[in-house]
Write a protein that binds this DNA or RNA. Structure first.
Ligand SMILES: [Mn+2]
Ligand SMILES: [Mn+2]
Ligand SMILES: [Zn+2]
Ligand SMILES: [Zn+2]
Lengths: 157, 157
DNA sequence: TTTGTAAATGGAAACCATTTTCAATAAGGA
DNA sequence: TCCTTATTGAAAATGGTTTCCATTTACAAA
């Protein structure tokens, strides 16, 4: 559950300053857009949303801020294969939990799912251990995505 | 094991014609580049290779042919996060088996691995069944990739 | 073999998400 | 309030991929 429900300063200010970054209106607005979002936003999506309440924002700043957030580990960056990156607040920053994605190759819809995630985590742990030993490869991240047709697109075909 | 070891026409000619495509020198050269390759090639990589034996080739044709091959299911298209797509002959077209990838985020090296693939397949089957039922999502493809530091880059840090 | 026709081709231009450049601005410690 | 330096936005650059279009080619039919 996020703190800062209208009372003190937003929960991420401390972490932001701790990394030596300044708090600016643009960054504030971008974070809020990500916090309010219930979907996976592109840089352009975020730019549009922020632009309505803070017209001075530049797309460049959106890209730069997102890069910082990704490097700080506050935001995930995804590639769903449509040529533009998508951004999503990391679990713990929101109500969300660890999840993976179903991507419809037809309508580009993306479904979050948490089913079987425990099983997946178990396998991943085991795999990571084995692979890091065999290839002395240090795994820091993983991607699991399913591609196919969503219910609606399946029926339309 | 691929057929056509110097005797009849290449194994993929039939499938190609079956889809209504014509056999051309360019397509022949591109397929051969993929067959001979032991790594994951970008469009530019393929263009360079083909260009040495068939200078008339155009990069455009490489892209067009790759798209056909991907749609026909003869070639996989991957995104390892470095801004350019990589292509790899599908299992069965070569000696290769079903495998997944370890991607070094530092040197961009990609390691094929088959370890734990059986376990993974088991989980995937289960997951696919559950997800297709719950979300009526028809899964046609999946991506499992691990990101991190390869042995060499780990030591250099 | 010759011919007809649609498919295929290459080069140049367009596309488009993202990055770089740079002069102006603003955050925040002193 | 003042100073320093990070941050910013606009415009230009970048670079992989796609589109355009006039020319060439594969190959089936004659
Ligand atoms: Mn998600
Ligand atoms: Mn591979
Ligand atoms: Zn769909
Ligand atoms: Zn490496």
């Amino acid at each position: 559950m996020p703190r800062g429900n209208g009372l003190g300063p937003p929960w991420w200010h401390g972490r932001f300053r701790g990394c030596g970054y300044k708090i600016t209106l643009g960054r504030e607005a971008i974070l809020n857009a990500l916090i309010k979002a219930d979907q996976h936003l592109s840089a352009e999506d975020i730019y549009q949303k922020v632009h309505t309440t803070y017209p001075a924002i530049g797309l460049t700043t959106v890209y730069r801020t997102l890069e910082i957030l990704v490097n700080m580990g506050l935001v995930f960056k995804f590639d769903f294969g449509d040529g533009r990156a998508r951004y999503e607040l990391v679990e713990g920053s929101k109500k969300s939990h660890h999840h993976h994605h179903l991507v419809c190759t037809n309508c580009k819809r993306v479904i979050d799912y948490t089913d079987f995630v425990d099983d997946e985590i178990g396998l991943l742990k085991k795999t990571e251990k084995g692979l890091s030993k065999k290839y002395s490869f240090e795994i820091t991240n993983h991607v699991i995505q399913f591609y196919g047709l969503c219910g609606q697109c399946k029926n339309t075909k």
